[in-house]
Structures are given as structure tokens and as C-alpha cells.
Simulated scan of single mutants.
Amino acid sequence: MVFLATGSEPCSYKDSQYSMSIPDYQSTFRPLLCAIENGAEVSFNDALESVCKHFQLTQEEVQERLPSGGQTVIKNRVSWARTYMKKAGLVLAPRGKIQITERGRQALLDCPEKITVKYLKQFQEFREFYTSKRTNTSITSSQQEEESSITPEEQMAEAYKSVLESLSADLLENIQKQTSAFFEQLVVDLMLKMGYGGSREDAGRATQLSADGGIDGVIYEDRLGLDTIYLQAKRWENTVGRPEIQKFAGALQGEGASKGVFITTSNFSKEAKDYANRVSSRIVLIEGHQLAQLMIDYGLGVSTRQTYEIKSVDSDYFNAE
């Protein structure tokens, strides 16, 4: 990576307040322009590397990814910076590269500290882009984004996370309203959804035959029945303590079993977790929040109301000879 300089005074890289953390996307506007200020076309990846160096990001920070896992946080933020400044006419972005314009050079003079969305709004092209993607939103919403530290994609991820948290709470609330027998069957259904067991009928008969001795269900680990997993289900609101895990471990030993799954709608005490890690049988503990997430992931007790896709430009298509 190299920093490019012109005959004029180069941009300063010494006064960053984000030296130990990932900067918000608006804070990357000016450093991105500084990385390309000599006017030559620069590959976006080289410019991104310059921004990372400017903020003195650690390797861990450079590799930190969005919740979706599809892109790193810093690349996502610098990509949005490129998009916003391109719409405002501060940069050109031909084929995976980036180049400063005269308007971009003027922005460096106008904004010696930080270039922001508010500054970009003086340009008609940017206002049209910015307004069109906010149809039917309020002025307050627009003002909030001007001060926002996260990109639109990150805002969507945060909103999605909130929806999931609300759905998880609703699932656990509905489970608590059901009978213990319903919950025991739910646990078997979840294991089947996850790919365990042979058939619903086999799992159902196993549940009915083993509803004593600290075991609520039995399911095959695979469709051939080469190994068996014993299940315990506790539809509780209070914390599950060590005595319950001891009872389950004893039941496994009595059956000559080596694997068990203990699922609760609440949580496990530290003592319970420590004990489960020490016993010879392999016992997996699943708490309420994990149970809800698994139900969401495997489509049990939930239905899809709306699907959104986030797409990006396929650079391979446009770079094909």
C-alpha cells in the first residue's frame, strides 16, 4: 500500500480519533479522498487499505464482519463512502477503481476535518439520489442519518436483529402457554428438523416409551440408527440447577447412553454447566434463547412473512473481456 501525494500539501493522517476502533462510514469520506488525491485511478482495494492504515486498524478490526458474514465492516463502510461521494460527484468509480474529481479536491479544502452527508447535500445530483431512496420518510429520519455512524446496510441488519429478538421472545412466550407434553414433542420435532432421527413415527413412539427416569425422548442420531440421543425437556421459567443435570446424567448411565441433549425454556446455572462438562456422557445444554434461535433457523413454529435480498454489482460480469 502507498499513500499518494500531490504538489500541494498532502492530507494529514495524524489526528484520527478512531485509531483504536472501526470508524463510522461518514468518517471515512475524507481519508478515502486523501488516499486518491493525486488524481490517478487507484484500485478500490488499495484505497481501502490506505483508509485502514489511516485509522490504524488492527488485523482483528480489519477482518471484523457484518452480522450477515458476507463482508467486513470496514469494507462495507468505505464502499458506502465511495457510493455517496460518487453520487455527489466527488469521485469517479470505473471498474473496481476510484478516482478523485475537481469537486473532490475542493471538498478536501472545504472540509479540513471531516466530510459529511450534510456537506454532500449541497450538490443537486446527491440530493436527488438521497431523496429518492427516502420516499415517504420524515425529515427527522433524514436528520438522523446525517448523524448516523452506521451504513444503510448496517441499519437493516440492526432492524433485522430487533425483529429476531422480538420473535424469539414471542416463541418462548407461546411455548410457556403449552403443556409439558407439547414441549416434549416440540423438542423431538426440532431434532428431526435438524436432521436427526429416522422418522416422526419412530421418534413419537420413543417419546411415549421413555417418559420416566429423567428422560423425555429418544431419537436416532442418523437415519440408520447407528447411535441414540436421549432428550430431556424442561418448560421452566426458573433457572435449571445442577441437581437436574445430575438426574439426567444418572438416567443416561442407567440406559448405557453416551449422548444426551437437555433443553429448557429458561437457562442453566453455572454449576449445572460445569457439571455437564465434567461427566463422562456427552451432554449438550440448550437454553431458551438458543432454542428459539434454532426454531427460527430450522423453520419450526414460524412462517416467512417477507423476504428481502441485498444484492451488489457482479464485478466479474462487467470485467469480462
Rank of each mutant, 00 (worst) to 15 (best):
Glu184Pro: 00
Gln71Pro: 11
His54Pro: 01
Lys121Cys: 06
Val187Pro: 00
Ser210Ile: 13
Met191Glu: 11
Asp316Ala: 13
Asp314Phe: 09
Gln63Leu: 11
Ala88Glu: 12
Ile219Asn: 03
Thr135Asn: 02
Asn238Gln: 14
Thr239Glu: 15
Tyr25Asn: 09
Ser266Met: 10
Leu92Arg: 14
Cys34Gln: 05
Tyr84Gln: 10
Ser50Gly: 15
Ser303Cys: 00
Gln59Gly: 05
Ala169Met: 12
Ala249Gly: 05
Cys111Met: 03
Asp216Ala: 06
Val188Ala: 07
Tyr196Leu: 15
Leu294Lys: 06
Arg103Val: 06
Met20Lys: 12
Trp80Tyr: 06
Lys247Gly: 03
Ser141Val: 10
Phe268Ser: 09
Tyr18Phe: 11
Ser50Trp: 04
Ile229Lys: 02
Asp297Met: 00
Gly7Cys: 06
Tyr275Pro: 08
Phe44Met: 11
Leu172Phe: 03
Glu287Phe: 01
Ile22Pro: 04
Met85Glu: 04
Leu300Trp: 03
Arg30Val: 01
Arg200Ile: 15
Ser315Val: 06
Gln176Met: 11
Pro31Gln: 03
Arg105Met: 04
Gly204Val: 01
Val313Gln: 13
Gln26Asp: 12
Val73Thr: 11
Phe248Glu: 04
Glu102Leu: 11
Gln26Cys: 08
Glu237Val: 12
Glu145Gly: 01
Ser148Met: 06
Tyr298Ala: 00
Leu32His: 00
Asn76Leu: 15
Gly214Val: 09
Thr207Arg: 09
Asp46Phe: 12
Leu294Cys: 04
Ser266Glu: 05
Phe248Asn: 05
Glu146Phe: 10
Ala5Arg: 14
Gly250Tyr: 00
Ser141Ile: 08
His54Trp: 14
Ala81Glu: 08
Val240Ser: 09
Pro152Phe: 06
Glu41Thr: 13
Gly241Gln: 12
Asp110Leu: 06
Thr207His: 09
Ala292Trp: 06
Leu33Cys: 08
Thr116Ala: 00
Gly89Phe: 05
Gln63Thr: 13
Asn45Gln: 11
Leu33Arg: 01
Glu255Ile: 01
Phe123Asn: 05
Tyr130Lys: 07
Tyr275Cys: 07
